[in-house]
């Protein structure tokens, strides 16, 4: 399997999925990324089998009074990637905060 390019956007999307945000618009809201970034990342992750997606149950959607939504879920491979992403994000935060700068 080709290794995923772990961009910051990919790390954000993986993190969002790992924390239970499972729809496109939700992911945009929580990450602050634009639609033009989120959808291509989701599609790439799906192509790499890090994420699987399916339509939610039609009846459920009707009950909620909205169109059915596409539901994304991390695969085991995706979960490992999400952990890696979390680690990266932590490191980045450390680097960008006083702690990281003081240590430099």
């Amino acid at each position: 399997m080709t290794p995923i390019r772990m961009t910051q956007a990919t790390a954000f999307v993986l993190r969002a999925l790992a924390t239970g945000h499972r729809h496109g618009f939700e992911i945009m809201e929580v990450t602050g990324l634009a639609s033009g970034t989120v959808y291509p990342v989701l599609r790439r992750l799906e192509g790499e089998r890090a994420v699987s997606s399916a339509w939610e149950d039609e009846a459920e959607a009707r009950e909620a009074g909205r169109p059915r939504r596409r539901v994304y879920e991390l695969t085991p491979h995706g979960e490992a990637l999400a952990q890696m992403a979390a680690e990266r994000l932590r490191e980045a935060t450390r680097f960008l905060t006083d702690e990281g700068l003081a240590g430099a």
């Binding site: 496109g24 618009f25 945009m28 639609s35 989120v38 959808y39 291509p40 909205r66 169109p67 939504r69």
Partner: peptide
């Protein structure tokens, strides 16, 4: 996209946000 647009509308996305979203979708 239609489903996400509906979600966005429900969440009260303003006109500027909608335009941004629409441009992003085309880009995607």
């Amino acid at each position: 996209w239609e489903s996400d647009l509906a979600a966005a509308e429900r969440a009260g996305l303003g006109p500027a946000g909608r335009v941004r979203w629409a441009v992003g979708v085309m880009w995607a």
